[in-house]
């Protein structure tokens, strides 16, 4: 929604800026008033809205599933238990299909990824202005802050910190299990002895750096692509919702047209958010499987 006071560019920027708490360049800690201040904080800042929503959604997920798990019996399942079991069964089937080694951590990780990412993506379907306006009103009337300076991004998965955070966790797990299963030497060997190898020792020495560059790039590409795929999809989807929302300021005809567009995009987006959650989960499972497989020859 754009009003007369702010331009489209300001509206979009406002929507794309996180509510940031961090250390100002002069050393004191506080909330950033706008994007430039947030930028100036550098690394020592935290996106309060991202953390708030991701943790809230994660806690909702865990509480619901924990409740179902606590009362899980082998008898006739109730509504919640039925749903939770259905999701778990789905995740378990996927893990069994892609993950061949034995590790009790992978399936819970996949479940966490699927539900949590889905819930964070789902925030995208809420009308883009509802929560930011509510937060603005709350900031203005309760905390006495200028509403324009209240930034509230509600979709945590449009924050690269979230997607990179998750992919880094997956990457660390990959590293840990690679070394644990194959041993440090085995892991180094996997990075340096493929795809080119030779019986000739001199040639092999030449191949090692080439192999390492290739394998290292493909290794690093895994967490990068994992997080950028989710971030890019969600960011673009959010952007389109914001652009559609801009049309509501363009007269009633544009507004009605925008309403239809928003509806259509939201329906299409249901597919995307589910698909992205599913892809993130599946790739994480596949990467874990790669970390566990010992004799892999390319």
């Amino acid at each position: 929604m754009s009003s007369e006071q702010i331009s489209s560019a300001q509206y979009i920027t406002h929507h794309l800026t996180n509510w940031t708490y961090g250390q100002f360049p002069d050393g004191h800690w506080g909330f950033a008033q706008d994007g430039t201040q947030a930028m100036s904080m550098g690394f020592w800042a935290i996106h309060v809205d991202t953390m708030f929503w991701s943790i809230s959604l994660g806690v909702i997920f865990l509480v619901l599933f924990r409740k179902a798990a606590k009362h899980a019996t082998a008898g006739v399942p109730g509504g919640l238990q039925n749903f939770v079991e259905w999701v778990c069964e789905f995740v378990n089937t996927n893990v069994r299909g892609s993950f061949t080694a034995k590790n009790d951590m992978v399936a819970p990780m996949a479940l966490t990824i699927f539900i949590w990412v889905f819930m964070m993506n789902f925030m995208d379907l809420l009308p883009v202005d509802w929560l930011p306006l509510a937060a603005g009103a709350l900031g203005e009337h309760v905390f006495g802050v200028e509403p324009h300076h209240v930034y509230f991004k509600v979709v945590p998965s449009t924050d690269p910190n979230t997607t990179f955070g998750m992919s880094i966790a997956v990457f660390l797990l990959m590293m840990y299990y690679s070394v644990k299963v194959k041993g440090a030497a085995g892991f180094v060997g996997e990075l340096t002895l493929h795809p080119f190898s030779s019986k000739n020792p001199a040639l092999q020495i030449v191949f090692i750096p080439i192999n390492f560059v290739l394998e290292f790039v493909s290794l690093i590409a895994k967490p990068l692509s994992l997080s950028l795929r989710l971030y890019g999809n969600m960011y673009a989807g959010e952007m389109i919702f914001i652009l559609i929302a801009l049309m509501y300021g363009g007269g009633w005809a544009m507004g009605v047209f925008g309403g239809f567009l928003q509806l259509g995009w939201a329906i299409f987006h249901i597919l995307i958010i589910t698909l992205q959650a599913f892809i993130f989960m599946t790739l994480a499972i596949v990467y874990m499987d790669m970390a566990h497989s010992v004799a892999e020859h390319h």
């Binding site: 996180n18 690394f43 966490t112 910190n161």
Partner: peptide, 29 residues
């Protein structure tokens, strides 16, 4: 901006995985 949120999310994610692995997945399975 990439900032401490990155670490926060990594830790949060790890905790969620741990909780799911400890208290959610086994009873349901």
């Amino acid at each position: 901006n990439i900032n401490m949120t990155l670490l926060g999310q990594t830790i949060t994610f790890a905790l969620f995985i741990w909780f799911t692995m400890k208290f959610v997945w086994p009873p349901i399975m």
